[in-house]
Simulated scan of single mutants.
Amino acid sequence: MQNLAPIALFVYNRPQHTERTLQFLQQNELAGKSRLYIFSDGAKTKADEEKVAEVRAIINKVHGFKSVKVIARKENAGLANSVIAGVSELITDYGQVIVFEDDLVSSPHTLAYFNDALNRYREEEKVMHIGAYMYPLTAVDLPQAFFYRAATSWGWATWERAWKNFEPDIDILIKQFDKKKRAAFSIDHKMNFWKQMQEFKKGKNNSWAIRWYASIFLKGGLTLNPAQSLVNNIGHDGTGVHSGINDIYNVIINPKPITEFPDSIEENKQAFKAIKSFLTHRKGNMMIRIKRFAREKLAQYFSK
């Protein structure tokens, strides 16, 4: 397998998470042949300086890859700006990129899945994004990998031809949605994607991911996804930028490699149905929701 995509890893102020993410990445069978670029954002506040320094001590000792380059910023750009700039830079140099953040544990086959898919769908204009995460779906009859409309941001890859469609301007994106598109975009109103767009416009979130999904959606693009997740997010402990404390999205990582990819470039109807069902019931009944709310509030209280 030639032409391996470079890996962009975005880190900030979580040394333990960064260390675990790197340990799992190193265990990937293609790690030794892959170039790793680690983008370390500068401290936002005085209080963050120590943790940022701890993270930098870890990333400056990384080995086990074909090459490692650390890009350390003096000032704080924020996650969204860091990701957009880092991805754009590597895409310009390599024409493709694999993207990780500092809170993802991966399977030993995750890099192989990304590179196989990047090579397989390189010329398919409609395929714009390869995701490694998938919700804990209960449907048993899904293929190993399938196409779906929404882009997941926990471990992903793309090509220059797709990334050039990324539209960072929220007003340009919002203008292109009518009622029907809003429904389709938010998985028949089962996921708060449209709300995330509106909150971005109001300055309540700073998500690059929602703008990337909107860019893909408006171009009629598709994303490739595994039926069983190849990554798990370990950031839902209250330490992340956008992560609360919950276990709804916790998954068991697929231990096997993905060997079968879809030939037909269209959204998989069964997968869409399974995802929609998961999103509809993900928060559980009222009792479960109350318990979860109480647990999250207590955890926030004790972490202060």
Rank of each mutant, 00 (worst) to 15 (best):
R122H: 13
K219W: 07
D48K: 05
P262G: 10
M1D: 13
F147L: 06
K219L: 08
G86M: 03
S40H: 00
F24Q: 08
N254E: 12
I248V: 15
I130T: 04
K181L: 15
S186A: 14
E125V: 13
H281V: 14
I71P: 00
R289V: 05
K195N: 11
M197K: 01
I174M: 13
I58V: 14
H189A: 10
T239W: 06
A132E: 03
Y94I: 03
I265H: 04
W208I: 09
E260L: 00
P6Y: 05
K202T: 07
Y12F: 14
K164R: 15
F147Q: 02
Q23G: 02
A80K: 06
R122P: 00
Y37M: 09
Q23R: 12
Y249K: 11
L111V: 05
L222W: 03
N13G: 10
I253M: 05
K283F: 14
H281A: 14
P136Q: 07
T110G: 01
L142K: 00
K276E: 15
D102F: 07
G42E: 06
V99H: 02
N285V: 12
S34D: 07
V231N: 06
E267V: 08
L142T: 03
N28C: 15
A57G: 11
N119W: 02
V87P: 03
L137R: 06
I210K: 05
T239A: 12
K276A: 15
A43Y: 05
F185G: 01
E75V: 06
H17Y: 12
M287V: 14
N254W: 03
F185N: 02
I245F: 05
S67P: 04
K126V: 07
A5M: 05
H63R: 13
Q196T: 09
K273C: 05
F278E: 03
Q16F: 12
K179A: 15
V11S: 04
D141A: 06
N119E: 06
H129P: 01
K126M: 05
W156A: 05
K74F: 09
D48I: 01
V241T: 09
